[in-house]
Write a protein that binds this DNA or RNA. Structure first.
Length: 310
DNA sequence: AATATCTACAACCGCGGTCCA
DNA sequence: GTGGACCGCGGTTGTAGATAT
């Protein structure tokens, strides 16, 4: 059982004085002993009813604190480690749809907690918005994510998969792509793959909105109610047809190599033209490593100029 | 080597919703 | 209907470790 070693010396934490107050409740980092107590209690009695659980387990913690510790850290199915490219893509996609609905987004990333996704968003995505001197909720920044970063993520996922193919599939457009076996357990639905479908969405250049009516996805299933991730589509913000994803209902997303022009006329082609440097290939938000620098100075400058002219 | 700054993330807080007596 | 207990969510803070100066 993995235990956070940071907790081993936490008795000197700034909140330790709380254990001396009238309520005798502890705050701050959890100790190894507390973790084990909680784990053992839940193993025997199950989770839920957190306030009484805290009392019965003999933990001098609030029920809230016990719940948080269990759900965000101790639960056996919590995934630890780096956010994968597919997860990054999914987070961007879902956040564009739902905003800061972290728990809802987390439902589609098995093993990831809302807290972890929220932290990822704040530390990585908001950092880039700050670099671009624009608000993370601004349309400009959202467009940048949608029409530049997300296609780049897809491209990088493709590149990664090409290096480690686990299967080969042919798109309806006749092109060949590799697929991954990344699975997502969608709430209320069967586990499914998502990255392969999303990649398909990017690689079929034969698609047009006109020929896409009443289409089904590459697995022959109707997609009118659920998108490629198996997520119910309940608005018309994006539409997904055949092997292609159309964002905003009016912005066909062409090949990642073609440059992206959104409905404000922002042309990112010049940015992509600079993309072949080694630094640029370090991709958005990193891969969990330190290579988190999507933007070089030129990129940032160009985007800032475009934003200021809008 | 020392100090300052940054980053990542665990944990807390407040609020609103739900349940139940 | 009402009030208290509880739960879950989203925002925020604190801090250890990493990195820069």
């Amino acid at each position: 059982m993995e235990v956070n070693m940071r907790t081993s010396n936490n008795n000197k934490s700034s909140n330790s004085q709380s254990s001396e107050d009238e309520s005798d409740l502890r705050r701050g980092p959890w100790t190894v002993e507390e973790d084990l107590t909680l784990i053992n209690y839940i193993a025997t009695h199950g989770e839920g009813r957190w306030n009484s659980l805290a009392r019965c387990a003999g933990l001098k913690r609030t029920g809230k604190s016990c719940r948080l510790r269990w759900l965000n850290y101790l639960r056996p199915d919590v995934r630890r480690g780096n956010i994968t490219l597919e997860e990054q893509l999914l987070i961007l996609e879902l956040h564009s749809r739902w905003g800061n609905r972290w728990s809802k987004i987390a439902q589609y990333l098995p093993g990831r907690t809302d807290n972890e996704i929220k932290n990822y968003w704040r530390t990585r995505v908001q950092k880039h918005a700050k670099q671009l001197k624009c608000d993370v909720n601004s349309k400009q920044f959202k467009d940048t994510m949608r029409y530049l970063w997300m296609p780049r993520l897809v491209e990088r996922i493709q590149a990664a998969n090409a290096g480690h193919p686990t299967a080969t599939a042919t798109t309806s457009g006749g092109s060949t792509s590799t697929t991954t076996t990344t699975t997502t357990a969608t709430p209320g639905h069967h586990a499914m793959t998502y990255s392969d479908n999303f990649i398909h969405a990017q690689v079929n250049s034969n698609f047009t909105p006109e020929n896409s009516a009443n289409s089904s996805d590459s697995f022959g299933t109707q997609i009118s109610d659920f998108d490629y991730y198996g997520i119910p589509i309940n608005n018309n913000q994006d539409y997904i047809q055949g092997d292609q994803v159309y964002y905003g209902g009016e912005n066909p997303l062409s090949s990642p190599n073609c440059g992206y022009i959104n409905n404000q006329g922002m042309d990112y082609q010049g940015i992509d033209a600079n993309y072949n440097t080694q630094e640029q290939q370090q991709w958005p938000f990193g891969v969990g490593d330190t290579n988190d620098s999507l933007w070089n100075v030129e990129d940032i400058y160009m985007l800032q100029q475009q934003f200021s002219n809008m």
